[in-house]
Design a protein around this nucleic acid. Structure first.
Lengths: 184, 184
DNA sequence: TAGCCCATGTAATTGGTTACATGATTGA
DNA sequence: TCAATCATGTAACCAATTACATGGGCTA
């Protein structure tokens, strides 16, 4: 009973207006990129599925092959299915935190390598936090009037808060590990 | 080039001493449970794979069917493979944060349901944080002498910090949403 | 005219879950 | 004697990724 989340990601975008597969792929990899991703080849099968299930209608735009477009429109059933899913509690995923797994097995690592892994993780978090900050200002200036601005900013805020918490943890972890290695 | 993380989770446990499949499964679902999980049916194929690759040796304990045991020992190659993996940077996973996706599509939700989803998420985070706190004290009193205690406590600390950051974010998000609904 | 973007799709594979199947031993 | 735990495994399925395939249009 797992929940086709790709389908709802696409359906949610369609709820904001008709789109082609290509536009959806681009939107996911730009607008949603800091909390969602889909692989390229995934969008089209999902759109076919939505159409088959009656959650979206296809509008064929004629054109030469390699240039024809299919624009998808959400249906009433589609809006209902989306609202149903939005109202359901988030499904907790089984945890799989690779950094913590490596930390847990840390005493089997080669000397200094665990600390290096944590430092690299910390660096990435810092870069990601910086990117989110500039995204926040871009969003605020470019989309200042849209109704879902607040939701967008909240999603960015979540990312920033959890990255900051991660960075602080990395500092604590590095302190601990340095202390341990001092006694070796 | 995805990275068989199940195999390294098992290998990491074997590095701490020989174990049977059953013991590994139990250990993952208790000791590692707050940051790692494997499904039941997964352990045995992984162990076969490790043995085939020469990373573990099998010690057959004879016995009646339904009671025979296979105890796996890590090999020198296994320790090397584990250390190699431990020294490699954590692979960033494509982000898929269902709560933020729902938030982003929040204006298509039914009235009040988005807030309810966030409140439920917050409640779960609070319970998880409480469980982690008691785990921390249990670990500290029961395993006070082991060399990897510090690593264990750090992994718990990571969980607590990120849960606390999540809870605070939920509060902010609920404030924002309540404010918006007041004007509707 | 080359390179990039627009545009849609399929096939093979992976990593993993779920459900199923079997049977022995131990303790209440 | 019955339930829980010990113990190992297979089959079917699933969501999603990766790689592949095709081709048009635009711009420097």
């Amino acid at each position: 009973m797992r929940s086709n989340r790709s389908q709802y990601a696409v359906l949610g975008l369609l709820a904001g207006g008709p789109r082609t597969g290509y536009e959806i792929a681009k939107e996911i990899s730009t607008v949603l990129s800091h909390f969602w991703s889909e692989s390229d080849g995934q969008i089209y099968p999902v759109l076919h599925g939505l159409a088959r299930a009656g959650l979206a209608d296809v509008e064929e735009e004629p054109g030469a092959p390699g240039r024809r477009r299919r624009r998808y429109h959400i249906t009433g059933d589609g809006r209902e299915a989306l609202a149903d899913w939005l109202g359901q509690a988030v499904q907790p995923l089984p945890p799989r935190h690779e950094l913590l797994l490596k930390l847990f097995f840390g005493r089997h690592a080669r000397h200094g390598e665990l600390a290096a892994v944590i430092r690299a993780y910390r660096e990435r978090a810092i870069h990601a936090a910086r990117r989110l900050s500039s995204l926040a200002s871009a969003v605020q200036s470019e989309h200042g009037e849209e109704s879902d601005l607040a939701f967008w900013l909240l999603s960015i805020d979540f990312g920033r808060a959890s990255l900051e918490s991660t960075i602080r943890w990395c500092d604590r972890a590095l302190d601990t590990i340095n202390g341990m290695e001092g006694y070796e």
